[in-house]
Simulated assay, not measured.
Amino acid sequence: MILVANAAALAALWPRGEDQLVIYSMMGPARALTAAFTARTGIPVTYINLEGGPMQARLYAEGDHPRWTVAWFTGEAPMAALDATGLLARHAPDDPEWPDAPFTDLARSLLPADRAWLPTRIGLGAAFVAAAGSPAPGRSWQDAFLHARAPGLLSPVSSGGAYPVLATILAVATGSGRSLLLGSRSRLRIFPSSSLLFEALRSGDVSFAILPSETAFNLRRRDRRLSVTLPVPNTVLPDVIGVSPHASPTDRKLAAQFIRFVLSAPGQALLGRDTAAALGWPPVTNAVPDTTLPTLPVDLVHLPAGLWGARQDEEIGWFEREVAR
């Protein structure tokens, strides 16, 4: 059984059967991946997918009485927040039930000290996406902001998924990220929704858009007239997966099987083709990178998940007052 639920459907409760894995996801639909897992293991999957805000609200509302076993997100900040409130299982390095995959050096550097989550894909905090007919921006933050006719941004005020881009600009943009945003404020175009930003990009109303790399590469997959440039320096924005501390021993074993499958070479291949949010680089050495992606840059910064998650309201408030006004 594979179920992709929307917000309306979540009002109804479903009975928990034996040996059923319940996944709460912000990753987008993953039908082929979950179907392949069920075919291989015989374990049925209930897969609930929502955007960040509604999903986080649901997780905290369920609290210590969760209906989920696995949580799967883009970005570490939501996981760090769950972990800080005791809503993620923590694992010792030698825990035999917690998967130990052949991680790349970069992926292994992302593992939290309490091993409460694992990376399932590597993305970047920002990418420049230009439409056909628009000159592709260079890789320099300074040049992109100061010389572009009309850079486009998704508003972090209206979309939680836009915060990683803002955090990347503020943390690593050459010079001062705040100065770049303020200096380009008269030309910067800010959109309340992804659909409006994408339409402006395709029509040429913006010269380029700044998006998380996974979103950028998925856009290019659908429209080959778009070009993607990865600015440097950049931040790491991994997809991460964790398990409820309230899961039964049986459910923890089911979760471990699913995570091992996702981190396997077949799982990674399916992940790159199937899950909309996961068009990134494999975190494991036994998987083949997507040939449509460039080489993963080396000039990367790993932002402390807890720190930047805690600063989210402050930074978005500053953006709303000073840039979006």
Rank of each mutant, 00 (worst) to 15 (best):
I2W: 12
A7W: 05
A11R: 15
L13Q: 13
P15T: 12
G17A: 13
E18H: 11
I23T: 10
Y24I: 06
S25L: 11
A30V: 05
R31E: 15
T34C: 15
A36E: 14
T38Q: 14
I43V: 15
P44M: 10
N49P: 02
L50N: 02
E51I: 06
G52N: 08
G52Q: 14
G53Y: 03
G53S: 12
L59G: 01
A61D: 10
E62T: 08
D64S: 14
D64L: 11
T69H: 08
F73V: 15
F73Q: 09
T74E: 14
T74Y: 00
G75V: 07
E76T: 12
P78K: 04
M79C: 12
L88W: 04
A89P: 07
R90P: 01
H91R: 15
P93S: 04
P93G: 00
P96G: 04
P102F: 01
P112Q: 13
D114I: 00
D114A: 09
D114N: 11
R115K: 03
A116C: 11
W117C: 08
P119H: 01
A127N: 11
A127M: 07
F128I: 07
A130G: 05
G133Y: 03
S134T: 13
A136L: 07
G138M: 07
G138A: 01
R139Q: 14
Q142S: 11
A144S: 12
L146A: 09
A148R: 08
A150S: 14
A150G: 00
G152V: 10
L154F: 06
P156D: 09
V157I: 13
V157G: 04
A162V: 08
V165P: 03
A167N: 11
S186Y: 09
L188R: 10
S194F: 14
S195F: 01
L196C: 02
A200M: 14
R202Q: 12
E214T: 14
L226N: 11
V228T: 10
P231I: 05
P233L: 09
N234P: 11
T235R: 08
V236K: 06
L237Q: 03
I241R: 02
G242S: 14
H246A: 10
S248L: 03
D251I: 03
R252C: 07
K253I: 03
K253M: 09
A256R: 03
I259K: 10
R260A: 14
R260C: 04
F261G: 10
L263M: 13
A265V: 03
P266C: 04
L271E: 11
G272K: 12
T275G: 00
W281E: 14
P282G: 06
D290C: 09
L293N: 14
L293Y: 02
P294E: 12
T295A: 15
P297I: 09
P297V: 07
G306C: 00
L307C: 01
W308S: 07
W308V: 12
W308E: 10
Q312E: 15
E314W: 01
E322W: 06
E322F: 04
